[in-house]
Design a protein around this nucleic acid. Structure first.
Length: 750
DNA sequence: ATGGTCAGTTTTTAGACAGCATGTC
DNA sequence: CTAAAAACTGACCAT
């Protein structure tokens, strides 16, 4: 089908696509159009990555917008939200507006309502529904990206329930669900009353195979020799061969440590094949990586990048990740070894993909569990960059002839699993039943069940009564904990229940927090950190060998600070979990005591990304706790607020005022304080030379800071730093270079 | 005393959404 | 009930 033949889309679209070199639709896209996506028909597209899913979504959304409606694009990750935003902004030239809404970044609320296309995470959409965002009622088209994630036990139910709610709000809503190739796409289409496009078509060839011994065995029966030098690992041989052909390699492994170790080892391979120009540009990237954070992880990563390799996992800071992704896309980094983060995240295709580890540790089964076919195929799907590589190759590694056969059987020739709803689990229902009642979708047990009947779970279940049973348990729990009120057959949310639903808290977290705060009169920061850390919304740090003793001691030492009873040391599982929460809480305490990032990372054996992640979650939960304390008039709200602000800025109590000034973080606040400028008010009255010295002589920074503190005369013109007030540090601030302009020297501050 | 190698033993194990109101070095 | 690689430990040997 030619781009000009697509019905019901804006007139400019065909021309726009031709400008991008698109004359003809890919077969799955053409099929989608034939099924009526541009004419408002709902559709499930189960097709491989990189086979043009985004354009299908765009066709549907643009056609909807052309008819005067609004379109919503739901993504599973925040990083994908910004990626899609950038992609859709190409249409702003034609007068469309694009907005984003995620937990950490949101377009202005009023503006969002006027947008033609909104990109949001599934949790954010759920939250918008709970908070009654009016514009959702006028939605014409919703696109659910990566819809196979409804299979995810933790986050799948949210997507499932959200789609059901949107469709109930607006029965004529067009639903476009994009999925990886899955075993039961027809069933999903059935659930969504949608047409189906189910195809394996890819724009560039993907060869999959298994490496064993000195050969690569491909799915089409082809075999090719691969010389593995003695004492060389297969992955290294594959990477070397790919490099010789001018391609890049993406290696998937099953742990962070493996990712780092493999990158270090394979940097030996990539390091040999760099041009001087590449070396220079890599050096720049490495430098940027070191600037992101002063930790071992950061140094290790930079050392790998200098030699053309990198590792990628969730312990990396956000900026680390995007630097690696960017340099890999630019073909500067030749090899990335990654945990599954990269398979699910932003688009990072590579000539070759090696799935080195096909088993992963899984505590729930007590050992290594094989990856699902779906996951492995998703990783395979990263092979081959359309328009850049002649083909893509994806390989598994076998250590024996039997394993060779098994891998073919299990992954290469296997069809992906069916996607199954995970809604009927108590933790999932706890939060969704409360939200369903609180936001008025149901007003009784029957109403709740009626609503749940619209979900995929109901469409799939073969176990009659199970959902009903779990729902009853959950309703009882919610009533007992005062989130719901039952009068006769009617269910209504209490004011507490409404608050919890709007705060997006797991009711169990809320119950734990309320419980802990009730018994407290003057909680310490540690007590509060521990309280939020043992909540199901916080993912705790892992206890390592020796930690049990260490934290048991700490527990007794600071026994008086903890809110609520400490479980008995002999009550096994509970105590361990309580200690994990303590470890996490102490990390937060360190952070809020101005311990530097490097030291924290080392002390707790985590990466900079983990520190930021925990801090963010704690900030959110403490904010929620503050609201709950206020709601219940508990008088501890100021203490909670203090704990929250300290975590937010990573400062001790005395710096809270200063760190609240825009442009002043934990480091600047500390330097100002030590120079005698102790409060925001001091900042307005302080001697300029003192302020300037505390801010390491950066004039522009000093002016901005003073302005943000509300000072009138901010000019630092002609002011010289007071040498007596200069921070006494081991490495003195770099003096402003002679001859360079003011502006240039302040660049380093941002 | 120091350092390197090697084999056997112990340890460890993926990911990342959300409130609210504005900003780090 | 299930694994595998890295990190650690200690013996042994050469300097």
């Amino acid at each position: 089908m030619k781009v000009g033949d697509v019905p019901a889309v804006p007139e400019w679209l065909a021309g726009h696509l031709r400008e991008d070199g698109i004359e003809e639709l890919y077969p799955p896209q053409a099929a989608a159009v034939e099924r009526g996506v541009t004419e408002g028909e709902s559709l499930v597209a189960s097709i491989p990555t990189a086979s043009g899913k985004t354009l299908i979504a765009e066709l549907a959304m643009l056609a909807s917008v052309a008819r005067g409606g609004t379109a919503l694009y739901i993504v599973p990750l925040r990083a994908l939200a910004s990626e899609k935003q950038r992609e859709f902004e190409q249409f702003e030239a034609y007068g469309l507006t694009v907005g984003v809404s995620t937990g950490n970044y949101e377009s202005d609320g009023d503006w969002l309502a006027t947008c033609d296309i909104v990109v949001a995470t599934s949790e954010k959409v759920d939250s918008l529904v709970r908070n009654g965002a009016g514009w959702l009622d006028d939605l014409a088209c919703v696109v659910a990206d990566e819809v196979h994630l409804v299979d995810d036990a933790h986050r799948g139910p949210t997507l499932e329930v959200t789609l059901a709610k949107l469709r109930q709000l607006n029965p004529s809503l067009q639903t476009v669900a994009l999925s990886a190739t899955i075993g039961n796409a027809a069933e999903i289409a059935d659930w969504l009353d949608a047409e189906l496009v189910d195809s394996d078509w890819r724009p560039i060839d993907l060869r999959t195979g298994v490496h064993y011994g000195q050969a690569l065995h491909f799915d089409d029966g082809d075999t090719r020799e691969l010389a593995v030098r003695s004492s060389e690992r297969p992955t290294a041989a594959i990477a070397r061969e790919t490099l010789d052909e001018g391609g890049s390699t993406l290696v998937f492994v099953n742990s962070r440590r493996n990712a780092e170790a493999a990158a270090k080892r394979l940097a030996g391979v990539t390091g040999e094949a760099l041009t001087p120009d590449e070396e220079e540009r890599l050096e720049t990237v490495a430098e940027e990586i070191r600037e992101v954070s002063d930790t071992e992880t950061s140094d290790d990563l930079a050392a790998c990048v200098e030699r053309g390799a990198a590792f990628h996992h969730a312990g990396l800071a956000r900026d680390h990740r995007s630097l690696v992704e960017g340099a890999f896309r630019d073909r500067l980094i030749k090899l990335v070894s990654a945990t599954p983060t990269l398979a699910a995240g932003v688009n990072t295709p590579s000539r070759r993909v090696v799935v080195r580890d096909w088993r992963r540790y899984d505590g729930t089964v007590g050992g290594m569990a094989p990856l699902s076919v779906l996951e492995v195929h998703q990783m395979f799907g990263r092979a081959g960059r359309p328009g850049l590589d002649p083909y893509g190759e994806a390989l598994l590694l076998a250590n024996s002839h039997d394993e060779l056969d098994e891998l073919f059987e299990r992954y290469v020739w296997a069809d992906p699993e069916a996607v199954r709803s995970k809604l009927a689990a108590e933790p999932a229902l706890r939060t969704h039943v409360l939200a369903t009642v609180a936001s008025g979708f149901a007003g009784s047990r029957e109403g709740v069940l009626e609503f749940l009947d619209r979900t995929l779970y109901a469409a799939q279940t073969t176990e009659p009564g199970r959902l009903e049973h779990v729902t009853d348990n959950v309703i009882d729990y919610l009533v007992v904990n005062d989130f719901l009120e039952r009068t006769g057959d009617d269910l209504t949310a209490t004011s507490l229940g409404h608050t919890v639903s709007r705060l997006y808290l797991d009711p169990m977290s809320a119950a734990e927090i309320v419980d802990g705060l009730r018994g407290a009169s003057a909680p310490t920061a540690m007590g509060l950190y521990h309280l939020v850390c043992r909540t199901p919304d916080m993912y705790e740090l892992y206890l390592r060998s020796g930690d049990r003793e260490e934290y048991t001691m700490l527990a007794y030492e600071r026994e008086s600070e903890f809110l609520g009873a400490m479980p008995s040391e002999f009550e096994d599982g509970r105590f361990e979990e309580w200690l994990s929460a303590l470890k996490t809480a102490r990390m937060l305490e360190d952070w809020a005591s101005e311990v530097d990032e490097e030291r924290i990372a080392e002390r707790y054996g985590v990466g900079p990304g983990d520190v930021r992640g925990k801090v963010d979650t704690a900030e959110w939960l403490l904010g929620a706790a503050e609201r709950l304390a206020g709601e219940l008039d508990m008088g501890v709200a100021p203490a909670v607020r203090e704990a929250r602000v300290r975590v937010q800025h990573g400062v001790k109590e005395e710096l809270m005022d200063l760190a609240g000034v825009r442009g002043v973080g934990r480091k600047r606040a500390r330097r100002l304080f030590d120079a005698g400028v102790e409060t925001r008010a001091d900042l307005r009255a302080a001697e300029k030379p003192v302020v300037l010295a505390a801010l390491r002589g950066r004039r522009r920074t000093a002016e901005t800071v003073l302005e943000n503190a509300g000072r009138e005369d901010v000019s630092m013109e002609g002011v010289t730093p007071d040498p007596d007030a200069a921070p006494a540090e081991s490495s003195p601030a770099p003096a402003e270079r002679e001859g360079t302009g003011e502006d240039q020297s302040s660049l380093g501050d941002f």
